[in-house]
Simulated scan of single mutants.
Amino acid sequence: MEKRFGNPIFVFLHFAAQIFPLTLSQSISSGGTLTFQHCFEDQLQFRCKKITELATNSLRINQTQSFTYQLSSSEAELLKASVDKDDYYFLRARLDSDHTDKYMQCFCKANDVSKSGLLIGITINVDAFGRVYAVEVSPLDRNDPKLLLLPEEPSDAPDTLTGLVTVHGSHQGPSPDLEGYKRKLAKEKAEKLAAETGDNRSFLAKYWMYIVPVVLFMLFSGQLGGQPGGAGGGGGAQ
């Protein structure tokens, strides 16, 4: 395996997370343990085996932990059978604490897990109060940037499962623009009031720009169109 402690990015993130755990992240409020099992469908029933167990107070929002698990020969056969049948790889999580005891389940294609080299990512979703409400599982690519956080390269040993566990917190949605809405209402009210009040100006005040050109045209037309008068006479016969 290739050691990654020489990577300056990993060194910075590793020691920053140790020194500033509360400023870089937020812990999960639920105390207790979170147990993960992977399950395979075998003759209309599930065969499950625990792959890791985490204390919820050790988890931090937006941080990643890793684990490895060695599949037994029977589990490897069940995974191969699921791949051949195009079945799913199931993950079940049990949250056991003083306040609750609940199960959550998710799945992905077993063929995708096999193609990834048994490298999976597990996402724990928590609400605004830090309470776990859902889990997700998906295969990871060997070039995934998250793997830079591992102290070592993922194991190439046969039937060795490597998992990355990440906690995602909820994000506050955009708040409504109250000031903009108030300005819009005021503008609509002013436009409506202006339409109802109407234009009280006089006829000349409203249409002078049309009247003046017509008057000027008529004046100039009258001056240019007049003909000069003439006098004439004839003499009588003598």
Rank of each mutant, 00 (worst) to 15 (best):
N62S: 15
P213H: 10
L149C: 09
V212S: 03
A81S: 12
Y181P: 02
Y210M: 06
L13E: 11
L34N: 01
K184F: 13
I61T: 08
P158N: 09
S25N: 14
G173M: 12
P213F: 07
Q238K: 10
D144M: 08
Q37R: 09
I19G: 08
V83C: 10
G198L: 06
A134W: 05
V11C: 15
D84N: 10
I61S: 06
F36Y: 12
L34Y: 01
T160Y: 00
A186R: 14
C39P: 01
S138V: 11
H99L: 13
L161W: 02
R4C: 10
D141F: 10
K182I: 11
E152H: 15
A231G: 10
A110S: 02
D127S: 10
E53F: 05
D156Y: 13
I51W: 04
E188C: 07
N62F: 14
E75L: 04
E188W: 09
Y103T: 10
S114C: 14
S29F: 14
P8C: 06
S72G: 14
L91I: 12
P154R: 05
R94Y: 01
V165G: 01
L219S: 09
I9H: 06
K102E: 15
K85G: 04
Q238G: 03
Q37Y: 07
L95M: 06
S73D: 13
Y207L: 06
D144G: 08
K187L: 13
S175Y: 06
E75A: 08
N57E: 07
P228D: 04
L71T: 06
Q26D: 13
L24N: 07
H171V: 15
A81Y: 01
E136H: 09
S170R: 07
D96F: 04
S116Y: 07
Q63M: 14
A55W: 12
I124T: 02
P21R: 07
P21C: 08
G225A: 09
Q223R: 08
F40H: 03
V113I: 11
L164Q: 00
G169F: 06
D141L: 15
V132I: 12
G32F: 05
K189G: 12
D141W: 14
V165S: 02
L193T: 13
F67T: 01
N7L: 11
M209S: 02
C106M: 05
V126G: 05
